[in-house]
Amino acid sequence: MNLPANKLVFVGGMGAGKTTAVRAISDVEPVSTEMPLSEHATAEKTQTTVAMDYSSIELDDGELLHVYGVPGQRYLDFMWPLVCDGALGVVVLVSAASHEPVSETLELLQEFARIAPQASLAVGVTRTDEQPGFLLPAFRDALFDAGMRLPVLRVDARSSTQVTFLVKSLLSYRYARDARTD
């Protein structure tokens, strides 16, 4: 029996807000693999995810949407294909405070488009409130110039409303994609 695509994956670099985003939209307390940071710890971030976050969202018929948060670091890329098998969507989270937000995002988008061609992709940019110099349209246009035309939104990973809005955007985008090509 073919199982429906029933996974939603958040991926991003350290401090992008994956664990926080998964927690913000989950029905249950996520299973997390956070460990204390050995270096680069700040007052706001003292822990980092060393494997993945997992949680679920229950639908009205009891089915589950499985929600994963996976680190974007290359040395953990062995788990990406496993997690993305059966994913309907992949949200790339990137911090606006990142040194190279465009190249960091592009690399993940290209990699996950290859690993999970069936999944729809979207980008959430976190911490924009701390970076007044960050301009979302310019960031989005740079992704477009590199061949990525997809939803790109600012998001506060702590806010259930905003993370949910990002997921809704992804679902709407996926629906429109299927409507166009069906």
Partner: peptide
């Protein structure tokens, strides 16, 4: 398809 039926329920959930 199972995908679209799941998608419809998921959309309704959100």
């Amino acid at each position: 398809t199972a995908d679209n039926r799941f998608m419809a329920r998921l959309a309704r959930r959100f």
